[in-house]
Design a protein around this nucleic acid. Structure first.
Lengths: 339, 339
DNA sequence: CTGAAAGCGCTTACAG
DNA sequence: CTGAAAGCGCTTACAG
């Protein structure tokens, strides 16, 4: 490794103490009434000597890292990938870098990564929480560490969160399907306790009710989280095949499920929208550009990410603000999959 | 914040010195001949008191962070998102977390983020480099910081890298097109100095030559990096429209370009593969599941990521190994877009 | 087998 | 206006 320039080296070069250098370099020269000329001299020297403050020493004293921890289910997922991108962009604008982990919706990993991030002293956390994380999350909030939950939250946990109106979005999706004359609307969702999924299911139920359609348990398929895609496709193909005669539309509660579902339809030779209407919560390239285009209930991903960073940074920089609960509206994008 | 348990607290509780605690907790008890019973006592106590080592103090002494820095163009891109996912998985298995940044192929950001990561003392770096980064990269290598380049590299820079055989992959793509009788093969690529793109272009040229096709400059369209998708679509639509009569196939050198291209075709009412054959470097969900399925030259993303982490961790943990140059083969996946 | 002491590079009262 | 000193929490020679 190269010779590291420390504050002492600058102090020596400038003929002042380390204290003075530290003050100047932290922009407190005016405040501490360091002479203009001295301050300038130190700054010039720091630049010339290519001084870079030692992150550890600084952190050890101040606890600050200018780093945000981001936990998502899976960074390769369209939704989370795009979320992460905007989080990173916005964070960067405000001088933070982001460290990310995928929880993979897995208990062991969920609990671990949060501890790891805490050990590394993130200044704040943006988390798409799994239910497994609740104890760690409670501790986090308890210790007043800046945190914002994203995509879902825990009603009993007094934390910031940014989500989407899952209930009404799903309700609208069902309304849309019903308005086109679909009567037998199947639901494909994940087998999970996560709130956003529960809300989407509730919205579906309410949608059926509002449209005078009866709910049938056999019309609902729940896929466990984290299954490899091909396994999902198989399972869905089986489900669709059995139910074949019995439904005219399917509402998918996530974009991953929708992709698997379309693959299953394709394998079974069931054509969309001729044989079955499809609507999906959340968008992606396939839905947008595939043939037929898939009608979706889209989420304002960019806005979610922006808001999350904004709320988080506010909390980091002026602690003690009240919890923000931000619920953004979804928007239907009609394409060709509903008949 | 909660009361932080330090090594001193444990030392006090155990009635030994901090030195002993440090030794035990670093698993060097045997080596230092600490008595079994003492070691056990300290370990138990550390656990009971929920001791977590202070990352800064440790880093300040040892320089180790157990963190890998990952720089990609854009985390929301299918290729990089999937790459990042596997990098994170593999890193996690080996006890590292990953900090990521998107370079956005932008000069200012490119140079900045690398410095930021270095300031935060990553143990190693996995980088899809932009040409702007070359000076910083040279410094990195000079200082012997563990680094592996991914997706592309600099021939004159003596670093580890993991890529794909871009030249032969592209050559094969053109061969495939030609073997089906396509004679006028257009190329859509990015306007960039990056090596992987150059290699793909070279592969295309060689492919034309090998198949006795003449190269025409007017058949090549270069799109600047980082344009918003809709701008790309417009530009491509214009290009395709002008060239309409004049080409029977298009080779896209990246999956992003392919997506924009398909959208342009769709807007123009040019049907694939009836009017034009399409082949694309790199895969995604749209290509795989859209109608028609797009024939692609796929990259072994998972393997690339695994290799990168493997090489990097090896270098971190036993410095001074020789530079690894890993070039993985691509594989054609035939679907329905080539006629 | 175990401990006292120095030091990693900062920042921050405190003093003058 | 500026400096000497302590201390953040570790690890590592050195000593016994």
């Amino acid at each position: 490794m190269a010779k590291k320039v420390s504050i002492k080296d600058i102090a020596a070069a400038a003929g002042v103490s380390a204290t003075t250098v530290s003050i100047v370099l932290n922009g407190r020269a005016r405040e501490m009434k360091i002479s203009e000329s001295m301050a300038l001299k130190v700054e010039k020297l720091a630049e010339k000597m290519q001084y870079r403050p030692n992150h550890f020493a600084k952190g050890l004293r101040t606890g600050k890292t200018n780093t945000i921890g981001l936990i998502v289910d899976d960074i390769s997922n369209y939704f989370f990938g795009h979320l992460a991108k905007v989080v990173e962009e916005e964070a960067d604008k405000k001088g933070y870098t982001v460290m990310f982990c995928s929880s993979e919706n897995n208990e062991g990993k969920s609990r671990n990564i949060l501890n790891m991030l805490v050990d590394k002293h993130m200044d704040g956390y943006i988390i798409a929480p799994t239910t497994f994380m609740l104890p760690e999350l409670e501790k986090l909030i308890d210790e007043k560490r800046p945190t914002v939950l994203i995509d879902r939250y825990f009603p009993d946990l007094n934390s910031n969160y940014v989500t989407v109106d899952n209930f009404n979005g799903s309700l609208e999706a069902v309304n849309h399907l019903a308005s086109k004359g679909n009567r037998k609307i199947a639901l494909v969702t994940n087998d999970t306790d996560q709130l956003q999924m529960k809300q989407r299911i509730d919205g579906y139920m309410e949608g059926l009710k509002k449209n005078g359609l009866v709910f049938e348990k056999s019309m609902v398929k729940k896929i466990p989280f984290g299954w490899p895609e091909q396994k999902q496709v198989k399972e869905l193909a089986q489900f669709f095949n059995k139910q074949k005669a019995d439904f005219d539309a399917v509402f998918f509660t996530s974009n991953n499920l929708g992709v698997a579902g379309l693959e299953a339809f394709s394998n079974l030779g069931i054509s969309v929208p001729e044989k079955v209407s499809v609507i999906c919560f959340d968008d992606n390239d396939l839905f947008r550009l595939g043939k037929p285009g898939i009608t979706v209930m889209s989420q304002p991903i960019k806005q979610m990410a922006k808001k999350a960073v904004e709320v988080l940074v506010r909390q980091i920089e002026q602690s003690g603000t009240e919890a923000s609960h931000i619920i953004l509206p979804t928007q239907i994008i009609e394409r060709e999959s509903v008949r």
